[in-house]
Amino acid sequence: MHDRDQDIIVCRCEDLTLADIRALIQKGYRTLDEIRRISRCGMGPCQGRTCRALVQRELQASGINIKDQVPGVFRPPTKPVTLGSIAEGAGRRSDHA
């Protein structure tokens, strides 16, 4: 492992470095989904919009053919929204109904 890898952030939401991701792949977490679920990589407010492609690149670089893997599901909402805004919007809509 290069020292440099510990200074490179891959997942900004969960503070995971390139060294962390490479260590997980080494330990046998060999799909995007497995890495996400064990480390919370890509599960923060950006929902993987930064790290997803970077992790896939690391998987490919370690000899795993990512074209055989499901790319992971994008789940709603598209961007973070407060519980208060959703509740308020829902209330306003039912007022009009």
Partner: peptide, 16 residues
């Protein structure tokens, strides 16, 4: 949930 636990109003949903 915002009725039952009002301070949660300001917290963002990231995934369902």
């Amino acid at each position: 949930i915002t009725w039952l636990l009002p301070p949660l109003k300001g917290i963002r949903v990231v995934r369902q």
